[in-house]
């Protein structure tokens, strides 16, 4: 991708964003519209990002860094960069399948069944959480139940109830920034209405014409001790040219 084209794309994107950003001033969008806009912000056809995961355990914090290549929602490839013990560990997600490669054993293992329910690297996220890549609009019915000011940002509060029956969470409550269409807070509820998990999204920046929260703090609300898991994107690029072979099991061993 040459520099000039990149700029053009940027300009175009910015123009679009402005249009959207101005919209709320004119009319209150429906809940579905809001969700659609959120989905558009958060999902992309193609992205490469480096991230840091800080796991605040009861016994101190750990930081892991990784680089991820993703195309669409179905294919992603993550390589851990640090700490030394995890360096070179790679994860490949293809459709519904997940493989992990460890350089010390030179083995590629498929993670399936109950293993998917285990935590990723000791975080408050499970592999399953990572795997569910369906868009919110596909899986939840939304209603706007109010508006709130959150960290000096105006938000709509949306209540999402499952419309398919194989979801981990029956209902969600999300606080969506009225200007940038980014959820600033998400709460995950059990069928009984008990709060299970909370995610706080922050450091919202604009990249390639889309708003993106660079930091997400996850916390299991039933568990005590530890301050959750912080997920920080240190670098993200959209529309990169990602070669196809990266999404193959052979690439894990390289």
């Amino acid at each position: 991708m040459n520099y000039y084209r990149h700029i053009t794309v940027m300009k175009f994107a910015i123009a679009i964003i402005f249009t959207f950003a101005l919209m709320p001033l004119h009319a209150q969008p429906t809940a579905d519209q809001i969700l659609e806009r959120v989905d558009r912000n958060l999902s992309s056809d193609n992205r490469v990002f480096e991230s840091t995961m800080i796991i605040h355990g009861a016994r101190g914090s750990r930081t892991l860094t990784s680089r991820t290549y993703a195309v669409g929602e179905k294919r992603s490839f993550t390589e851990y960069l640090s700490p030394p013990r995890e360096e070179g560990t790679k994860m490949l997600k293809l459709e519904e399948q997940l493989w992990i490669y460890s350089p010390s054993t030179d083995r590629t293992i498929q993670i399936s069944g109950h293993m998917l329910r285990q935590s990723v690297m000791g975080s408050d996220l499970s592999y399953e959480d990572m795997m569910d890549d369906r868009k919110l609009t596909e899986t939840y019915d939304a209603t706007v139940i109010g508006s709130e000011v959150l960290d000096e940002r105006n938000t709509w509060v949306l209540e999402l109830t499952a419309k398919v029956d194989d979801l981990a969470y029956e209902s969600l409550k999300i606080w969506v920034d009225t200007e940038r269409y980014i959820p600033l807070k998400e709460e995950f509820y059990a069928k009984s209405g008990k709060l299970l998990k909370r995610a706080v999204l922050s450091d919202v920046v604009q990249i390639d014409g889309r708003w993106f929260p660079k930091t997400i703090l996850y916390k299991d609300m039933l568990k005590q001790g530890g301050d959750g898991t912080e997920f920080k994107i240190t670098d993200i690029r959209f529309n990169e040219n990602i070669p196809d072979y990266i999404f193959s099991k052979a690439a894990l061993k390289q």
Binding site: D166, A168, Y169, A190, K191, S192
Partner: peptide
Amino acid sequence: VTLRWRDANGTFDAT
């Protein structure tokens, strides 16, 4: 004490 489980569809529930 709080108990969490998943129903037949894998949806979390707690009470």
